[in-house]
Amino acid sequence: MAPQKTETLPIKTASDIVAARQAVRLWAAEMKFSLVDQTKIVTATSELARNTVQHGGGGHMVMSIVESGIHQGLHLVFEDKGPGIADVEAAMRDGFTTAGGMGLGLSGSKRLMSQFTIETKVGEGTRVAVTRWK
């Protein structure tokens, strides 16, 4: 599935999280996702971008429009070169937090999107890829 359109945004500061939300909202609206779907995608973006800033020490987000058969999807990749996650299974559980938050970032984003994959290596970084299909 070669992407039709792609864009990369830096995710380094709290303002970048806001910019990422707005860019994703724009694309999701252009792709004519329903309002509920747009809200879910933007919320997941906010959670994952915050993880990139808080835990990954900053990184970037690659957004692209992908196609599979007749379906169109919005594909987002959050990548950082931070410390990585030692126990991914624990990090994926509701309520697991190391930043004093709710611990819903990863688990919640997974529920809000159609597909979710995480690759992480201690000392090298983390890559979270999510897709929402129409």
Binding site: K40, T43, L104, G108, R111, L112
Partner: peptide, 8 residues
């Protein structure tokens, strides 16, 4: 809807 699905 999103908030509840997120887990809050």
């Amino acid at each position: 809807i999103t908030l509840v699905e997120l887990g809050m």
